[in-house]
Design a protein around this nucleic acid. Structure first.
Length: 925
RNA sequence: GCGGAUGUGGUGAAAUUGGUAGACACGCCAGACUUAGGAUCUGGUGCCGAGAGGUGUGCGGGUUCGAGUCCCUCCAUCCGCACCA
């Protein structure tokens, strides 16, 4: 009987579905284990071979844990709000919900082919009203909360309001942006507008002005991603920095806890480091510089208050609110021109471009707080409005960017470091003794810092302070395809929609574009299109992509609950995600926001854990291999080996990789049929009459024509082969180019495994006592496999199976016990074939996945001797088989007596002989 | 620019704690079988060399009896950088 993988796989997929093999429910008799994948955005291109990589790994692990006796939660869903469906809607008019539904159907079909053990009853879709009802509900909790620093947690805002009513805000200890101080009487006298304006400065979800990339021509805000070379990717229109009223999330309140929590979770150091850097904690001091001849104080934050006597100028961000006020008439034109120029650059461009130093002098001066010296105030785009206070005190001798700016504009560079040469570059190390600094002279950086902060505080112009690079997260989008806010406006004030009216469903609109006057698309909706219509108007913004993905792992625990985002009993049973697998590109987005929401929900008493993902693994990206063809100045397509030395006038075109033969030559007729511009293409073929292409590694993407889908491979080799092959490619965490060449090796392995059970085409196993050799092979494999799985080394796991099957084949092993155990071991990797074999071995058992995982017995592996590698000066020269019972001294003696040893000693006396028992002998000459 | 990662045969890679570099595969070479198959099986395959042997984990240095692994300098490639998901 042949290994008819297509029939076997289709059969078992159906049986699993009929028998609900992967349905899971709470079961207190078993330990639980929660294995989660980052859910995909269902794009129009379908799944490519890169998507399943992490899913295969998590599926293997989930099945392994199940065999180990755990009650495993392993769900899947879709992050189904997002820009691509909206762009498609803009182009075609098709409602994003339809596009999304179609894409999900395609994804599901492809996921099913791979034989994953997902419990599909628990599927969630972020764009489903029954799901985003609870996203809206969570937003409401955050709107109704503030961060209490005394309790060190998010707290209902009602208690803050009570405090305001009783005593005002002088003694409140909360995270806020409120400059205003008021007592109880003043609070009572505030208008509702004034009260709300104050509360907005405390709420976890609040309205405030933020900097955005505004594209006037498109009437919309753009992501940095959508801006190429300073203009919009779509249409090529200019983009400018603009301040707009936006919803934000007060994630900064959690900066310290987000840092501290990293110590309690099992993530890679690299990922933790990325989050730490993103949060960017730094200690230093705020300092106010008075502006000369103006009643203004410029506040800066510095990590180096010890260098305050090195300040020779100040730089404000071009957008700093003071610029207009302080700019002298003589400089106004230059400053305005510079502001306009800076507004056209994105933040990233501004940070990345250090070669072009630009800036403008405002004509104004600040006064040094200690020397009273006049300090010129400049503006420069290396200072960002959205970071810190949007202003820096420039210490050119101690900071390279300040140094470069000073050199470029010929500003003074006073040296405040004893014995440091700053003629070529700034000295940024903190180990120099401070000089030329009045009361800081002679101090090291640390003492100088303390003394400077004390002096700053004594003067009342600032204070020692911890600063975070982390910014509050902008939470509104001027888009259509996202969650509507549960918010309406009355008298210009935002109000929450009552729980009973949730969800506020997405209204239909006539077009998915902003309105003429730049209002978001939802402003187009007719009143009756809204599921509820309150106040003067509903909120027209929608939530960002990260809203729905910040809590979906909770919904899987109780996906059909109508009364709560998840029931307390379910939340208590499933608890944290034990293993989370997904791409590292989410390191500072999703993974930070999800931690933030989890902590907030924890603080408000809805869940009892405050870190969502106990362990996290980043799978690498599978890259595509693009096919590049060359078209010459004569418009002919040249074979790679027919290109002239001088390729001037040649251009590269990417062609669909499906049009290639195995030898990397183009199927010319297929190319002509592929795209009209190639219909009459002429070619310069090589001696074999072929047109060869160059292969180049790129991100796998539709636009590079290098996408490989799992579908064809499943058809050709089967899902089990594809699953094992993707694991065999290399370490899970590593990025690697996709290459189908090696897949035959894995496919051949499965056939070889199949043959272990089939003699002359018939299924046959024998029931005698297994041989010691077979037991040794089996138990070696059990040990290796278990170790590999526990450290998520799936690639070496596959090779261990290969070694095992090779050995058993060589031993002609056909023993039931051995093969049964091997089949259970392999079932997580290749579920279909193993289930099929299992059905033959144990016809009464409904599924192999209720079996018990084999237990390793070391007694089968005990060895009495060891092949000692004998090396001289660290180079291995020969091997000697010795009894392991020999002591180190005995080994030394036997080895030194060997004739081979004498040969390599060349008559010399060894200086030293090192014996590591059971490992190595090294003789030093 | 800032932050993170990665560099080992022709290719994907292995080497888990500092202890035999290249397991397991792909490819290639030679052969067997044959109803000629994208089937199966056997042997070989880092590089140089006829061989003895030499050499070899991005470059250069260091620590060590011993370094792919630890430390330092440099180079190259990839990912993220706040409204893509």
């Amino acid at each position: 009987m042949d290994y008819t993988f297509n029939a076997i796989e289709a059969k078992w997929r159906q049986i699993w579905q009929e028998r609900n093999t992967y349905k899971v429910s709470e079961d207190s008799s078993k330990p639980k284990f929660y294995v989660l994948d980052m859910f995909p955005y269902p794009s129009g291109a379908g799944l490519h071979v890169g998507h399943p990589l992490g899913y295969i790994a998590s599926d293997i692990f989930a099945r392994y844990k199940r065999l180990k006796g755990f009650n495993v939660l392993h769900p899947m869903g879709y992050d189904s709000f997002g820009l691509p469906a909206e762009q498609y809607a803009i182009q075609t008019g098709q409602h994003p919900a339809i596009t999304t539904k179609e894409n999900i159907a395609r994804y599901r079909q492809q996921l099913d082919l791979m034989g994953f053990s997902f419990d599909w009853d628990r599927e969630v879709r972020t764009s489903d009203p029954s799901y985003y009802k609870w996203t809206q509900w969570i937003f409401k909790q955050l709107f109704d909360a503030y961060y209490d620093l005394t309790l060190d947690k998010a707290t209902p805002i009602a208690s803050l309001i009570r405090t305001f009513e009783q005593e005002g805000n002088s003694n409140t200890n909360a995270v806020h942006d409120c400059e205003q101080r008021f007592d109880a009487a003043a609070w009572a006298a505030f208008s509702p507008e004034a009260k709300e304006a104050v509360l907005q400065q405390y709420r976890m979800a609040y309205l405030a002005e933020s900097w955005v990339n505004w594209c006037p021509a498109l009437g919309t805000v753009l992501a940095n991603d959508e801006i190429v070379n300073g203009v919009s990717e779509r249409g090529g229109h200019p983009v400018e920095q603009k301040r707009m009223m936006q919803w934000s999330m007060r994630i900064k309140a959690y900066a310290e806890r987000l840092l501290e929590g990293l110590d309690r979770i099992d993530w890679t150091d690299a990922l933790k480091e990325q989050q730490r850097n993103w949060i960017g904690k730094s200690k230093g001091s705020s300092v106010q510089f008075a502006v000369k001849d103006a009643d203004l104080q410029i506040e800066v934050f510095t990590t180096r208050p010890d260098t305050i006597f090195g300040v020779s100028f100040m730089v404000l961000a071009p957008e700093h609110p003071f610029v207009e006020q302080i700019c002298t008439p003589a400089q106004a034109q230059e400053v305005q021109a510079y502001q306009q120029q800076a507004a056209l650059k994105t933040e990233r461009d501004r940070q990345a471009d250090v070669k072009n130093i630009t800036g403008a002098f405002t004509g104004a001066y600040a006064l040094h707080p200690f020397t009273g010296q006049e300090i010129p105030i400049w503006i420069g785009d290396y200072v960002l409005a959205s970071y810190g206070t949007g202003a820096v005190m420039a210490v050119p001798c101690g900071d390279q960017r300040d140094y470069d700016f000073a050199k470029h504009f010929n500003l003074p560079i006073p040296n405040i470091f004893a014995d440091q040469d700053i003629s070529e570059a700034a000295y940024a190390e903190k180990d120099a003794v401070i000089a030329n600094s009045d009361f800081l002279d002679g101090l090291d950086a640390k003492s100088a810092m303390e003394k400077a902060i004390a002096a700053i505080e004594a003067k009342g112009i600032g204070q020692g302070k911890t600063n975070y690079r982390l910014r509050d997260a902008v939470f509104s989008r001027q888009r259509y395809w996202g969650e509507p806010f549960p918010v309406f406006y009355q008298d210009g004030l935002p109000h929450l929609v009552d729980d009973a009216l949730l969800p506020v469903t997405l209204p239909d609109v006539d077009a998915y574009l902003p309105t003429q006057d730049g209002e978001p698309p939802l402003a187009r909706a007719a009143k009756e299109a809204w599921s509820c219509q309150l106040g003067e108007r509903m909120e027209y913004n929608t939530m960002p992509g990260w809203a729905g993905s910040s809590w979906y792992f909770l919904r899987y625990m109780d996906p059909h609950n109508q009364e709560a985002f998840a029931g307390p009993d379910k939340l208590a049973y499933w608890n944290q995600v034990d293993l989370y697998i997904g791409g590292s590109e989410h390191a500072t987005g999703h993974l930070l926001y999800a931690r933030f929401w989890t902590k907030a929900l924890h603080d408000l008493g809805f869940i009892h854990f405050d870190e969502p993902f106990a362990k996290l693994i980043n799978q690498g990206m599978i890259l595509g291999k693009s096919a590049i063809a060359y078209i010459g100045p004569d418009q002919k397509m040249y074979s790679l080996d027919m290109l002239p030395e001088n390729k001037e006038g040649f251009r590269e075109v990417r062609i669909l990789i499906d049009l290639l033969n195995d030898d990397e030559s183009i199927q010319l007729d297929a190319l002509k049929a592929w795209q009209p511009q190639y219909a009459a293409q002429e070619f310069v073929c090589n001696a074999d009459g072929k047109v060869l292409v160059k292969r180049e590694v790129d991100k796998m993407s539709k636009r590079w024509y290098n996408v490989v889908t799992p579908d064809d491979l499943c058809e050709k080799y089967g899902a089990d082969t594809l699953r094992m092959y993707e694991m065999f490619l290399g370490p899970l965490e590593q990025s690697k180019p996709w290459d189908t060449k090696g897949i035959t090796g894995v496919h051949g392995f499965l056939k070889k495994y199949w043959r272990l059970f089939h003699i002359n085409g018939h299924f046959e196993v024998e029931d005698s006592q297994p041989s010691p050799a077979a037991l040794k092979t089996l138990h070696k494999t059990i040990k290796k496999l278990t170790d590999d799985l526990e450290r998520f080394s799936f690639n070496t796991g596959v090779s261990s199976f290969m070694i095992c099957v090779n050995e058993l084949t060589e031993q002609k092993c056909n023993n039931r016990h051995i093969l049964e155990q091997l089949t259970i071991l392999m079932a997580p990797y290749a579920p279909h074939i193993c289930e099929e074999i299992w059905a033959q071995l144990q016809p009464a058992s409904p599924t192999i996945f209720n079996s018990e995982y084999p237990i390793f017995d070391p007694s089968y592996l005990t060895e009495s001797s060891f092949d000692y590698p004998v090396s001289f000066n660290g180079k291995m020269r020969f091997k000697a088989t010795l009894e392991l019972a020999l002591s180190i001294d005995e080994v030394k003696e036997v080895i030194l007596a060997k004739p081979e040893t004498q040969k390599w000693l060349e008559g010399k006396d060894p200086k030293k002989v090192i014996v590591v028992h059971g490992k190595i002998v090294n003789i030093v000459l």
